[in-house]
């Protein structure tokens, strides 16, 4: 029975890992919760190594030193491109680093549940397992939105939409482990918004100097759809001098660019079920991932789906850790007989 299994001896540390396209997090049974950006950088050459002083760097530290590094974002489009460049190795480094951050006691066995984008699981099941096996004693891989759903106890008649960077993942729960048909991935997510915003801004302000990173920061600070009373003005250098720019319209257009695909995919997936279930699912839609922080998104989706009857959309409280918390809960609930040594 699950209850007794959760109280295992301390020689096992349960961890839930969310392997995201832009951010990865770990939640551990010892209470630790940590996250890093899913970038890995290796010094390009001997000089670079001396500049950065370490053989591998992660997240923002890697980005800051990007001139000296070979940067790899292994799950960029939700799929590990196996054999190409150093993606497999990068996934390994991320896992190794996250587990280090969780600080297992020496000699402690690690039982991990790893949540990955739905497409990754479809395409790279083995690759993911191989990347993780070196660092854990036992392992289960699940899809990211499923981990979120499990963590929030949304086991039946519900839908999770995880809007990440590279992908938005949809998952319908109906009381059993979701099949491939219950899950769908689209590429209109955070990165897509960034690209749109970048091109809108380049068009409107051709002489201003901004890069992808700045654009992403503008988005994360000001994202909204529909309307907001706020003014949105940011400093961007023009000929080396900071100048205020009005970017309100561009932010809005960029954020709204993902709405059609979101609404359509949601409606489409729900439509496969009996009308009775449709109503239940529609009243139990949860948004997760960094994209769920876009102001007005929840309301918009709710209104868009109301066309076909009542509907309730809510957001997870902690998008950064919702996935890893759910994965940890899965790990802790998993009967011990299922944890087979690798």
């Amino acid at each position: 029975m699950a209850q007794t299994d959760t109280r295992k001896k301390d020689d096992v540390l349960f961890v839930g890992i969310d392997l995201g396209t832009s951010r990865s997090s770990i939640s551990a049974g010892n209470g630790k919760r940590e996250w890093i950006e899913s970038f890995v950088g290796w010094p390009k050459d001997f000089i670079a190594l001396q500049v950065v002083g370490k053989p591998v760097l992660f997240g923002s530290e890697a980005l800051q030193n990007r001139l000296s590094l070979d940067i790899c974002r292994p799950l960029e489009h939700g799929v590990i491109k196996e054999g190409i460049s150093r993606n497999d190795e990068a996934v390994k480094e991320i896992i190794r680093h996250l587990i280090e951050l969780a600080g297992p006691a020496s000699g402690q066995k690690i039982h991990a549940v790893v949540g990955v984008p739905a497409d990754t699981l479809k395409v790279n099941k083995l690759a993911i397992r191989k990347a993780v096996t070196e660092f854990v004693h036992s392992l289960m891989v699940v899809t990211e939105p499923f981990a979120v759903a499990y963590g929030m106890n949304l086991l039946n008649n519900s839908m999770v939409i995880d809007i990440g960077a590279g992908t938005a993942d949809f998952c319908i729960m109906h009381g059993s482990i979701p099949s491939e048909e219950d899950q769908k991935t689209v590429l209109t997510a955070g990165d897509y918004i960034d690209e749109q915003l970048f091109s809108y801004l380049s068009e409107k302000y051709p002489n201003s100097k901004f890069n992808k990173n700045m654009v992403r920061q503008f988005k994360e600070q000001y994202s909204f759809v529909r309307d907001t009373p706020d003014e949105i003005r940011v400093e961007i250098p023009v000929d080396g001098k900071p100048v205020m720019h009005d970017i309100k319209n561009e932010i809005r257009r960029a954020c709204e660019s993902i709405l059609p695909a979101l609404a359509e995919t949601t409606a489409e997936m729900i439509a496969r079920f009996d009308p009775e279930f449709q109503v239940k699912i529609k009243n139990n839609i949860v948004l997760a991932g960094g994209g769920s922080l876009i102001r007005g998104l929840r309301e918009h989706l709710q209104d868009a789906l109301k066309e076909y009857g009542p509907c309730k959309v809510s957001c997870v409280e902690d998008p950064l850790f919702a996935g890893s918390d759910g994965a940890l809960k899965l790990a802790q609930d998993m009967p011990s007989k299922y944890w087979e040594p690798l």
Binding site: A2, L126, V142, N156, I177, D333
Partner: peptide, 19 residues
Amino acid sequence: ELKVRQEILKGIYEENLRI
């Protein structure tokens, strides 16, 4: 709910074996 939960946990285990 417990039953559903058990089903799901078993399902995950089996799916991982399949992988």
